[in-house]
Nucleic acid binder design. Structure first.
Lengths: 343, 343
DNA sequence: CTGAAAGCGCTTACAG
DNA sequence: CTGAAAGCGCTTACAG
């Protein structure tokens, strides 16, 4: 590995000049620039990241992260990934400031302003879908502060740097594919979703619908909304199953898994008929239901990895100017059964 | 983040002394050691990794990697992970030497000796299961050179640092779980394995058997060996299906997927009866068979990730002295269907 | 337009 | 047993 000093020696200039050429900083005589560039090319110069990271400490970079305050175990996983990565980057001497906010636009905007005053150079956020946030994010970017959004997608805003999360539509298709295999392509499905107007939930449902369009034996009997609330979920699942005794498959699109499963189990016990159930994510309560067989399979989106990846992308961009491979980075779609739910 | 210099100032000693305490190097007066340790504790000192990595360059560390020379696309994936990580660590100024060897003990031992002469401080290897290698690896470790083994497990040798790979037994169980769900717990299975005496293949089969022990409707009709060879695989699958027309499920344990699937398709066309097939890994030919529906699901072990993880563990150990979380690091067991095989 | 010097946090001889 | 100095590869003012 060549260093800037070696290149400087060969080019007959100072290290400072080489540095200027490499980082496009200040003015350099056109001829020397070309000469230096040629040597860089020939010797396949690559900056030493340890040197760079160490030197950049002098700039006192701060990365701001806004994480969700919620006793929702899914968010806890996501936060865990962010916090782990934060720890790692702190070990490189980069300051990572973690702010917690409830999941409302108002709370998030207020935290963003706090972080701006602290002089952050980058922002990581899991944005709420409430209106009002998008404009603030655009303002932040206008100040030349790159943003990475994680897990949640906004309809009216796209980070110019990166979104890290799931491909919800493809998840929905995968759910349908799974259901098809579990039911021999024949089932009458009841769908329990979180919110009709949440994009991620809607996308999963359209993926599901598009897939089963090719399977005439697969039918959607009813779709109901539980507002990600366990009690509501129990109620709507129970009434749905009572209204449609022909339902033999349930697709749980979002939260409220435990409540829905209680209704499903009761119905199974009453009628003796198996209801094939699949869900999303693997929060502890869902895991337990997979272990005991109530849920046959659950589709997971690696929240810890999402958190890590989001912060890593921001870090790499700030240190190296490295752009992510894509402006939409998707984590794997993982199918978990009772045998690999704890792996 | 506190630095050694700050601690030195507070303790009223030089940075060198602080460094001695931190790294247990040389002799330090017991009293000053205690004082320094107390300050380190109180101020929650954590070494700056960039500084450390940069300074360590002076030691001229070399990491040796022995990768497999084979036109096997699975090994290519594994190698890709190793090469990617190697590139990353080279960017930190650590030398990573990649040696290619065919998959025999003789070739690998000869490469190990080459690397030893070059003065490596760490070794990454995907060991062959041929006898003779284990002793050599033990000798390397006796010289205080840490080893990480990747993907392949030896019966008579365990790296004292780490094995990175798959939990083959649990993979086998997951395969059985999947087969159970795909067949409504009723099937007559033909098993096509690679080698009866390869540990990974044998482990997958025992996982499978242990799982179906609880399902009386699931039966194993026959098990045959294809020596990971496509033609042989075609032959033994075809003759197996002809000998047992009742087979309605096939479990492909190892390589030779394409050959086996050809026989399976022919049998399906002849008899009009669906044979539910599952396999391992997602090499391009397998992917294609998942896409076209011949294989319903394939269980993958993230070879790229294995490669990356193995080298990262070695790097972290050499730079930080950091031990891996476990001496056996398993990658996820991923189930892929036609909808998420390309995700 | 260019260079010399200092500094980021750590390790490594070397001197005492 | 302890400290001063040099160095790892880079960036950042500062001087000219």
């Amino acid at each position: 590995m060549v260093t800037q000093t070696q290149i400087a020696k060969i080019a007959g200039v100072s290290r400072a000049t080489v540095e200027r050429v490499i980082n496009n900083r200040g003015d350099v005589n056109d001829e020397t620039r070309k000469r230096v560039l040629k040597i860089i090319e020939e010797m396949d110069y690559r900056p030493n990241r340890a040197g760079k990271t160490l030197a950049i400490k002098q700039r006192n970079l701060k990365i701001g992260c806004i994480i969700i305050q919620a006793d929702n175990p899914f968010y806890e996983e996501l936060n865990k990934g962010i916090l782990e990565a934060a720890d790692e980057f702190k070990a490189y001497g980069i300051d990572v400031i973690i702010e917690t906010a409830v999941f409302t636009a108002k709370a998030q905007i207020s935290k963003i302003n706090e972080l701006l005053e602290m002089g952050i150079s980058g922002l990581l956020i899991q944005p709420t879908i409430e209106p009002g946030l998008a404009d603030v994010l655009r303002e932040v970017e206008a100040r030349n502060i790159p943003i990475v959004t994680v897990n949640t997608d906004l309809l009216d805003y796209t980070s110019s740097l990166c979104y890290v999360g799931n491909d919800f539509y493809l998840c929905g298709k995968t759910a349908a594919n799974l259901m098809q295999l579990l039911t021999g392509s024949a089932c009458k499905t009841g769908i329990v979703t979180g919110f009709f107007n949440a994009r991620s939930h809607a996308d999963r449902i359209s993926g599901f619908k598009d897939y089963i369009a090719d399977y005439p034996g697969m039918e959607i009997v009813d779709i109901r909304e539980n507002q990600d609330d366990e009690m509501e979920s129990y109620y709507i699942t129970r009434t749905m199953l009572e209204a449609h005794p022909e339902i033999d498959a349930i697709f749980l699109v979002a939260g409220g898994v435990k409540g829905a499963c209680r209704a499903i189990r009761q119905q199974q016990e009453k009628t003796g008929r198996k209801i094939r159930t699949i869900s999303f994510d693997d929060v502890p309560t869902t895991k337990e239901l997979v272990r005991d067989g109530t849920i046959l399979a659950t589709i997971c989106q690696q929240p810890v990895r999402q958190g890590r990846m989001a912060l890593t992308i921001l870090f790499d961009y700030l240190i190296d100017g490295k752009m992510p491979a894509s402006s939409r980075m998707y984590t794997d779609i993982q199918i978990k059964l009772k045998t690999n739910i704890d792996a």
